[in-house]
Design a binder for these strands. Structure first.
Lengths: 220, 220, 220, 220
DNA sequence: GATGAATGAGCGTTCATTCAT
DNA sequence: AATGAATGAACGCTCATTCAT
C-alpha cells in the first residue's frame, strides 16, 4: 500500500526513490541479460536492495515494466528537446532522428536495448503493450508535425502517417540490430542512413502527393 | 561395434516429419504467445503430440530453435525466388523487399512474428545468435549484389554495406511493429515505404559516391 | 540381421545370447558410470543393440539386475574353483579370499565394481535384495566349511558364523574402497591384509572356543 | 555497492536451522529409500517443508549431500571422543572401532546407512567423492596414530597404512551388510569381530615388521 | 519500510516402459 | 525377433508472489 505522507509519525516515504532505483536496475539487467534474465531477485540485487522490496514498491512485474516504459519515454523526450533547440523544418526532423540513433554524449545504449526488448514483449502482454503503445503514440505526436512541416503536407494525411510508420520501423529495427548484430552496423551509419531513408520517404510522398492532387484536379 | 544389424524389419523412422511438425507448432506458439509462452509442453500440445516427443526428436530446445531459424530461412528464400523470376536491376531489389514485407498470397505472418522474436532472443543467447546470424548473413549475401547491381557501386563498398544494413533494420522494425502495433501500419504501406526508403538510400549513396569520386579526382 | 540358422520356419530363438550380451553391457556401464548411469538406452547402446530390445528380452530392469547377480555368482565360483584346486585346510580358505581380492590374471574389476553397486542397491529393492542375497548365501555355503575345516570348529557354530560375516564384510568393504578411493589401497595389500584379518578371527574364535569349552566343563 | 542497509528490522535469518532440518530429513530418506529415493520433493516432505525451500537454503543437491557428509563426520567424531575418554594404547584403538560399529546408546543407524550409500555414490560423482574422501581422510588422521601407538610402529609406515586400509574396508563392509543383510550379522558380532581382525592385522604387521628388521640387520 | 523465508506452479529434461510396424 | 517411436511421470531447479517478523 502506497501510504503517501502519514502526517507526523513514522519514517518519511521513500517509495518514489525506491521505484526509480528499481527501474534503473531493471534497465541495466535487461541491457545485460534481457528480459529473460530479469528475475525479481536479479533486479533487487542489481539495485542493492532486498528481494522483497520489488513487490513492496510494485504490485507486480508488469507494473515495473510499465514504469520502465515511462522512464524510456522521459529520456527520449529530453534528448530530443536538447537536440531540437533552435532548429526548424527538415532540420528539426533530423534532430528527432538523431536523438534516437546518433552516437554521441547523449546516446543512451541502455534505453535502446530496453526499447528493443519492450517492442517484442509488447506483442504478448496487454498491459505492457498499452504502456509501450502510449510511448509510441506520444512519439508519433511529436514526429507527425515534424514530417508535416518538412514537407508541407497535411499532418493527418496518409503520406505523413506512412512516413511516420516507416521511420518508426527503421528506428525499431536499428535498436534490434544494434544489440544482436552490432558488427553489422558501422559506427555512425545508422543516423546517416536514417536521414537518407527519410529523404526517400519524403520524395516518394511528394510524388504520391502530386499524383493525388493531379488526380483530384482531373476529377473536377 | 555391432552394426545395429541394419536389417530391414522394424518401425520405420519418422524423425524428419516429426521435426517439421514440431517446428511448425513452435512457429504457431511463438506467433501467438511469444518465446516466453513456448514451453515444451505447449509446443507438443500445439503439435498434438506427447510432451516427451520433443526431446526424443530434438536434443534440446536450442536445437528446435535452430531448426526454426533454418525453416524461416528456407521460406524466405523460396518467397524471394518466386518473386524475383524474370526481374533484374532495381526490380530485383524491389522483389527482394516485397518478398519480405508485401501483403499477398505468399505473405507469411507466422514467419514474420518468429523472426521478430528471434531477433530479440539472439541478443542474449549465443547459440540462438549464431543461428539467427547465419540466416541474416545468408540474406545479406543475396541483398548485397542486388544493391550493387541496382546502383552500379562495388558490392564490397561502404555505401552498399550501409544500405544493406539500413534495409535490414527497416525490415526488422516492420516485423516488430506489425506484431505489437499492427494498426499503425496501414495495409500495404510497408512494402511501398520500404521501396521509398530504398530509393532514398540509393540516392544518398549516389551523392556520397559522387563526392568520393570527385575527391579522388582532385587528388590527382 | 544376425540370423543364425533358421532351421525351418521362423527364426531360431536367440534370447539367451541377447540376455548375456545385455548383462555383459550392463556390467561395463555400471563399472563405468554406476547404476545411476545405467539407463536402458545406455545399456542397449553399450551392447550395440536397439533400445527396445532390453524390454523384449527382459521384463524390466529388475530382471536384468537379477541376471547380473547370477552372472557375478558364476564368475566368482569359477575363480574360486580354479584357485582351490589341490589345496586344503587353511590354504583353501586363503584361496577363497584370494579369488575375491587378489590381483592377477583372473582378477575381475568389472565384477567387483558391480558387486559393490549391488550391495547398496539391495538395501532398497526387494527383488534385487533376493538375488543378491542368494549369491551371498551360496558364497557362505562355500566359506563356512572352509572356516570350519581350517579351525576344527563345528560348521554351524557361532564362531564360524561370525567369522564368515566378518570376512564377507571385509571383502564387501574392499570392493567399495577400491572403487571410490583406489589410491588408499596399495596394490596387493588387500589380499594380504585379508589373510591377516582372517588369522585374527580364527585366533579370536579359538580363544572364545576354549573359553566356552572350559565354561561347559565347569558346569558339569 | 549499497550495503543492503543492514538496518535491524526484518525477518531474522534461519538458514542454519533449516539446513540442519533438511540434512536430518535427507538422512532419514536415504536410510529408508536410498539415494535413488531421495528426490528433492521427498526430502522436503520428510522435513515437513515446501519443496522450493530445499533450493532456497541449498544451492543444489550436491551441496546438500556435502552437508550430509559433514554431519556424518561430526557425529562420528563425537561418538569417538566420548568413547575414547580415559583410554590409551590398544584400548583407544578399540574405542575407535566400537564408536563406529558397536551397538548401544550412541549407535547411529541412520548415519551408518548414509555412509554406506555415500561410499557407492562417491565412485561416480566427483563432488560427492571429494566430500566423502575428506571425511575418510579425517578419520584416517585419527586412526593412524592409534594404530601406531598400539603397535609401536612408525605412523607413516607401510604396515600402519595397510592396517588402516583394512580396518576402513571392514567397517565399510559392515555398514553395507548391516543394511542389506542385517540378519547375517548377529547383534554385537561386528564390534567383536572387528577387534579380532584388528588383532590379526597387528600381529601380522608385527611379523612383517620383525622380518623387515631382521632383513635390514642381515644386510649390514 | 524492510528483510528474508515460504510457497507451489512450471520449466527443460530424462527415463522405464509400451506399442506400432 | 527387432526397431525405433510414443507416453507420461518424475526429476532438479527457477521464479513471481506472499507472508511473518
Amino acid at each position: 500500500m502506497i501510504k503517501k505522507s502519514s502526517g507526523r509519525r513514522g519514517r518519511p516515504p521513500n517509495t518514489p526513490e525506491r521505484r526509480a532505483q528499481l527501474v534503473e536496475a531493471l534497465m541495466r539487467v535487461i541491457a545485460r541479460d534481457g528480459w529473460a534474465g530479469a528475475g525479481t531477485r536479479a533486479i533487487a540485487a542489481e539495485a542493492g536492495l532486498a528481494p522483497g522490496l520489488v513487490h513492496y514498491h510494485f504490485r507486480n512485474k508488469h507494473e515495473l515494466l510499465v514504469a520502465l516504459a515511462d522512464e524510456l519515454s522521459r529520456r527520449g523526450s529530453a534528448r530530443f528537446a536538447a537536440r531540437r533547440a533552435g532548429t526548424s523544418g527538415t532540420a528539426s526532423l533530423y534532430a528527432f532522428l538523431d536523438a534516437n540513433l546518433a552516437r554521441g554524449e547523449d546516446e543512451d545504449t541502455l534505453a535502446a536495448a530496453c526499447w528493443a526488448e519492450l517492442g517484442t514483449l509488447a506483442a504478448h502482454d496487454a498491459p505492457v503493450r498499452r504502456a509501450w503503445r502510449a510511448v509510441l503514440d506520444a512519439r508519433r505526436a511529436v514526429l507527425r508535425p515534424l514530417v508535416a512541416e518538412a514537407t508541407g503536407w497535411a499532418a493527418a494525411s496518409r503520406q505523413v502517417t506512412d512516413a511516420c510508420a516507416a521511420l518508426d520501423a527503421a528506428m525499431e529495427g536499428y535498436f534490434v540490430l544494434s544489440r544482436s548484430a552490432p558488427d553489422l552496423l558501422p559506427a555512425g551509419s545508422a543516423a546517416a542512413s536514417l536521414r537518407a531513408m527519410a529523404a526517400g520517404l519524403l520524395a516518394h510522398g511528394e510524388d504520391t502527393h502530386d499524383r493525388v492532387v493531379r488526380r483530384r484536379a482531373r476529377r473536377r
